[in-house]
């Protein structure tokens, strides 16, 4: 079973990896992974709630 890996996927924000199994010219199974993590959900814990929007808006700047 041939496997295709496309990493990085471009023209998107962030980092994405796709792995696909090909059977008879068709995709039989596939996996996607986000390959970057900053832990913003942990960074905002315990902060002044009024400023959290400034943190979470930086999850994606697009």
């Amino acid at each position: 079973m041939p496997k295709i890996v496309v990493d990085p996927i471009t023209r998107i924000e962030g980092h994405l990896r796709i792995e696909a199994i090909i059977e008879g010219g068709k995709i039989a199974d596939a996996w996607s992974s986000g390959t970057m993590w900053r832990g913003i959900e942990n960074i905002v814990k315990g902060r002044d709630p009024r400023e959290v929007w400034l943190f979470v808006s930086r999850i994606c700047g697009v």
């Binding site: 890996v5 496309v6 990493d7 990085p8 996927i9 471009t10 023209r11 998107i12 924000e13 980092h15």
Partner: peptide, 13 residues
């Protein structure tokens, strides 16, 4: 430049 380049995967690298 990952956001704007045409190639992806191996060709980008």
């Amino acid at each position: 430049h990952e956001t704007i380049m045409a190639g992806s995967g191996h060709s980008a690298e």
